[in-house]
Design a protein around this nucleic acid. Structure first.
Lengths: 340, 340
DNA sequence: TTGAAAGCGCTAACAA
DNA sequence: TTGTTAGCGCTTTCAA
């Protein structure tokens, strides 16, 4: 009469229903026919005990984990959140669940800790968001035996990866700015994944191609507020007529700072962003930027990973070119600064 | 000589190292002393085979899953993403991994599918983001046996929950707007979780308390663009002097729309948001809004869940009051619309 | 249609 | 210090 003080297991159900354990299993999985009356008794017992089959035990038999781990330096910033959304959506459609684990820094101990956490789960494979140093470090430290794909803004050697060709897109954007008549384009970076991000590479190449001088790079953090301070300084210095920012949030901060410093945007200084954040179109001036399909990127990464897990031949690189979005924040320079 | 074409298991390592299976287990876990030479041989075998212990098998023995599921209607919008970040951060500190699964609609079949996905994993408990109808539906459909906590903007009966007291904060915000001299405050909602969100309740109460007329509610989607259209219509109608929006993204859209319709903000129309999105301070005008600590909310939800999992007595409600953030977008009404 | 027996990969208990 | 034996909760043979 005294019920055991633990989660009921299949054995308890079998006993309560007066059948054998495999019979309960059969009604659970529907793998084989069971007589209607026993099905009924088993159902009732399950209901009464509040029985929930152990996912662990099932997984041990099934041998196929249905969990995919996403490792990232961050989960809530626009690009990261959208990429994760893309992975989750695609994975869920195939019956996979996704786990997320954040690696806070590229420091060895932290990376080890994160990987230990990941491998402690029954995972089928992992997607690494290689957008920043923690992501890069995690990718390098991952056991090579695990099915792995990376996601990033630039092609690199190693595991299969889905990439958004940032460099090409940045190149196009900077060319567009130059075409408006600016002599050169300043550049504000968000924290890069390695020495230099694709966005920066594209910017540099575009300037070089046009024979424009290359101004010193200005580094921002991920906080829009840091962009604001940079904007103020830019306004004070007064030598920039066009600024290309590493992402839209920073661009909005820079615009705010420029304005506070007395600089009209885009009349006096043009500012471009990157990513096409949903708010970019609402901002005043609306941002000229580059649209990146992060969710699609996550989706493709999942597809690649699934291929690796299933042992199919897959394309090692899956690249897409983000597209230029022309809005209001970039305009020709004032006459005084025109290069024409 | 022919290596088996499957992931190596502990038995393979034992064989390769010439020791018993438990000895390998001992060096893996460090649970007992093993002679240095055997440790060495085992290490070598592990290295050579690329052996990775099965998390599933370990979990079956350990009996304590270290996975926490987050169920949400969305993962990438500001409040959701930040809440998830908070859960993940706190969970990780305790050695838990978190999984996320999205429920796309409140439709029974979709909810069932999502729950099946969740319970197919070896989870210790679940955090439900009850911010929208899918979240509410998921919470109701969850097996009662699973340790569960909810997170939301308003207290409700049922499982333990962490809440941000939206109603109180919205009340304060609307009072502040009224104090500026507005006769009443219009309200634009984001899709509510039930019949009415706490934000709306607070708004309604504040107006009622002051004897102000209650304008019809205007419903927006989650897209800033929908806010823009509403802003345009508001500008055209010309009867609103103050607008309280369900979140900051919508508020920015509304401001953009009002401007496009020829209405200056805040000179002619005041607009307030909700959430304190990081971009709110960069927007022009910067948004008067309510700061919500979503990450803290997620953190508290995790703590509660951990209490439930460990069988501790916990507080059923864990409520926090978001705080008013006064910036530029709310000002006194133009003389023509003043209630003073 | 059903139950008994075996086994998934690992760790814990027990002997030696 | 080490190996042998059990056993975690389930599914899958294999007989009956």
């Amino acid at each position: 009469m005294n019920a055991p003080d633990r989660r009921p297991v299949i054995r308890d159900v079998a006993r309560a229903a007066g059948v054998s354990v495999p019979t309960v299993s059969r009604v659970l999985t529907g793998a084989a026919r069971v007589s209607p009356e026993k099905v009924e008794r088993v159902r009732a017992a399950i209901e009464e005990l509040g029985f929930l089959p152990s996912a662990t035990a099932r997984a041990l038999v099934a041998k196929k984990p249905k969990l995919i781990a996403v490792i990232a330096g961050n989960t809530s910033r626009f690009g990261y959140a959208e990429t994760i959304r893309g992975v989750e959506e695609a994975a869920r459609a195939d019956g996979y669940t996704v786990s997320i684990t954040v690696v806070e820094s590229a420091e060895a101990a932290e990376v080890e800790r994160a990987i230990a956490l990941v491998t402690a789960q029954p995972i089928a494979g992992v997607v690494v968001l290689k957008f920043d140093p923690p992501g890069v470090a995690a990718l390098e430290a991952l056991p090579s035996l695990l099915p792995t794909v990376a996601v990033s803004g630039v092609r690199a050697r190693g595991v299969p990866q889905s990439v958004l060709d940032e460099a090409a897109a940045a190149h196009e954007l900077v060319e567009y700015m130059l075409d408006q008549g600016h002599r050169t384009v300043h550049h504000v970076t968000v924290p890069p994944s390695r020495r230099e991000d694709g966005r920066t590479t594209g910017w540099r190449r575009a300037l070089t191609d046009r024979g424009a001088t290359i101004p010193p790079i200005i580094a921002a953090t991920w906080e829009p507020e840091s962009g604001r301070e940079i904007g103020r300084r830019l306004a004070e210095a007064g030598d920039a007529s066009a600024v290309f920012c590493g992402n839209d949030e920073i661009a909005m901060g820079v615009i705010r700072g420029l304005r506070e410093g007395g600089c009209a945007v885009p009349e006096e200084v043009s500012v471009a962003g990157f990513d096409d954040h949903p708010i970019s179109a609402m901002f005043s001036p609306s941002l000229t930027t580059v649209h990146q399909d992060f969710a699609g990127l996550g989706n493709r990464a999942y597809q690649q990973l699934e291929g690796v897990i299933e042992g199919r031949k897959i394309r090692k690189f899956c690249s897409e070119r983000p597209t230029l979005v022309v809005r209001e924040s970039v305009a020709p320079p004032p006459v005084s600064k025109s290069g024409a």
